[in-house]
Amino acid sequence: MYNNYIKRVIDFILSLVGLILLSPVFIILCLWIKLDSKGPILFKQKRFGKNKTFFYIYKFRTMRTDTPSDMPTHMLSDPDQYITRAGKFLRKTSLDELPQIINILKGEMAIIGPRPALWNQDDLIAERDRYHANDIKPGLTGWAQINGRDELEIEVKAKLDGDYVKHMSFLFDMKCFFGTITSVLKHDGVVEGGTGELHKEDSL
């Protein structure tokens, strides 16, 4: 009952309320992004959704318009050269993710779930298949996000996504939600251009 119906109702109500309450923040960020660099305010990118169907995710644009498209940040040789001044702040505070409230309202995403993979992230998609993590809606945040985020290797991230699928419930969602607030405030696991950084540090 929770996974099939109640979760969607909660997602819709919270995202609608959030969009209304955060509208002043949206306006300020839109103006800053527009004044800071050339290009659109919003950035959309093709991602995997539930059952590996495609949708376009929305974010505030944090990189220059000449950044290579459809490439994960960690695959860029020097990602910092492409990130705008406003973008650095937005990424550090995770405010660049706010427009995904629109994706949640549309029913393409949930508040809590595995982060949606890029259409060309075959390694992550294949690994998530092992844990049925591609069978549910991707989320704005999730269990993997509060347990390492950019520092996690693909295998570990997929395993955590699988753990979420296995234990998905209202209480577990609340744990992820409040854990995300703590992680964002502490900037835990944010490594520009990095994935698997936790393992790399351990091997040094």
Rank of each mutant, 00 (worst) to 15 (best):
M109W: 13
P116L: 09
G113V: 02
P72T: 00
I112K: 11
M109Y: 08
K106T: 00
K52A: 13
D129E: 07
D129Q: 07
L29Q: 15
R91L: 09
F43D: 07
R61S: 05
G49N: 09
D80C: 01
K50G: 01
I83L: 12
K44Y: 09
T62C: 05
I111C: 03
P114Q: 01
E97H: 02
R91Y: 11
E97M: 04
G113Y: 00
Q81T: 13
S69N: 08
Q81G: 11
I28S: 02
Q100S: 10
Q100I: 09
S37K: 15
L98F: 14
I57E: 01
Q45C: 04
R115L: 00
F60A: 10
K50H: 06
N51C: 03
G87I: 04
P72K: 02
P72D: 02
K59F: 09
I125G: 00
K44W: 11
L35Q: 05
A110C: 06
D66P: 06
G113P: 00
M109G: 08
L31V: 13
L35T: 03
G113F: 00
M71T: 11
R128L: 00
F55T: 09
C30Y: 14
I57Y: 01
P72N: 02
L29A: 11
E97T: 01
L35W: 13
K106N: 02
